[in-house]
Nucleic acid binder design. Sequence first.
DNA 1: GATACCTGTCATCAG
DNA 2: AGCTGATGACAGGTA
Length: 491
Amino acid sequence: MCSTANYVLPLRRNCEVLPPPGRLCGGASMPGPFPGVRPHGAPQDTEMDVAWQELMAITELQEFQVPTEGSYETAQYQSMDSMAPVGDYGMVPAHPQPPAPPAACEMSGVDTYDGCYPEEVPACRLASNTDAMYGNSEPQQSQRMLPASSHSQPPLMGLREHMNMSGTSQVHRRANSCLSQGLNRHMLWTVHGQTAHARSADDLESDSGLSLGSSPPLASPDNPVCAAPGYQSVEVGVTHSDGEPDGMTEHTRRAHAHYQMEYQSPAPSYLHSGAHSSYFSPQPGLSHIQPNALTPRSVKLQGHTADLSDMYDSTQPSRGSSQLHMYTKPHLSSSTPAPMSRDERRAIALKIPFPMDKIINLPVDDFNELLTQFTLTDTQLALVRDIRRRGKNKVAAQNCRKRKLESIIHLERELSQLQTQREHLVQERLEFQRSLAFMKCRLTDLYAEVFSHLRDEHGQPYSIDEYSLQQTPDGKIYLVPHTTMHKREHC
DNA sequence: GATACCTGTCATCAG
DNA sequence: AGCTGATGACAGGTA
């Protein structure tokens, strides 16, 4: 065991031989660390057939006949021609006539609303102007069944450009060009488009869509706007040249009748808690339409209301004009409200007897009670539940995104704070290192100073290389030879 | 035309 | 079991 007994010269603190520090250690610098329109070409027949086969595979559509190729063109021109002279339905001419399989119009019961989605009777209603105008044609089925790049897309793109999409600001941007462009495009579309069915805006705007089983696509009542100019072009350019004396085929009449029932008759009040205050009031007619209720197409149409109304007034009876104005906003302001959503249009199309906000926001018990107060078809029920699910998920998604953004902001802020703190700590470490270097330097000086004053019994100075100063826990300081220290270290 | 962003929707999971 | 919220993924629209 080693002990301090080996120390040769016990020294005391504050020894007289220890002079005060004479100088500061210099040079203690420390290095411191200091980041479409399908090229207006007719779709291939095979593709068309496949598309229709896929469509027909849908249960709700199986009752319809797949139109023959020849029927498309017939329908295109026939329907358009037939539309022109119609005087009872003002909205009729106000939309491009989508090529529809006339064969499907042979089906019975088309003129009777059975509560099904309008798309469930696509051919006839599509053949009519009604659906292409307000409703859409099997949007989701089509989207699911028909790939985006399918043959049916081009004509649809034409229709999309022509009729424009709902719910997009694009409506406003293109509003001015809608009339002129829509006319030309419609003509092209009419001539070249040979798609078996036309998709309405709903169709075009829809994404992957909802479940096919629960929510078949619905007709949308918002497609008429740009269609008007398109139809005008048809009416002017094509005129009634075929063999439709009265200019209206049977299926067209039925479709118009359908439209009359759907959009002209008193509709339930759809009060929406969101951007859309109400888009239908119980009173039929025009005056009740809220600005918010206007669809993009109606908004788009707004800019051309005068022109169109003049044309319609001259060619269409007041009834049709009334229908046209039904979706016409008095003033097109920059603060144009959001257009009707797809579900809103669907609700209108299916005549859901209660407002959207109730569908979405009511507690489940109240919601179920509400459902019991009305006799709804299965289709209506499915739609209502889908609307509720989508509405809630929509809000949830909005909240989720909001939270995500807030989380990102929070994390960025936290990151910034941590970076600041890190910089502070780095500076602090640098200061400590500097201080430590200074203290080491000073200790070295003091060490040398002490040794310079130490003398052995012979008056000789101790060598700093042979001796070192050690302090014991009790505060005593000893001069220890390195050999002893080495022994201690070994101990 | 490519890209980023926004929004709606769907699918899925968990409570 | 059904409802609801949360969220990733996807698609479409827009700038």
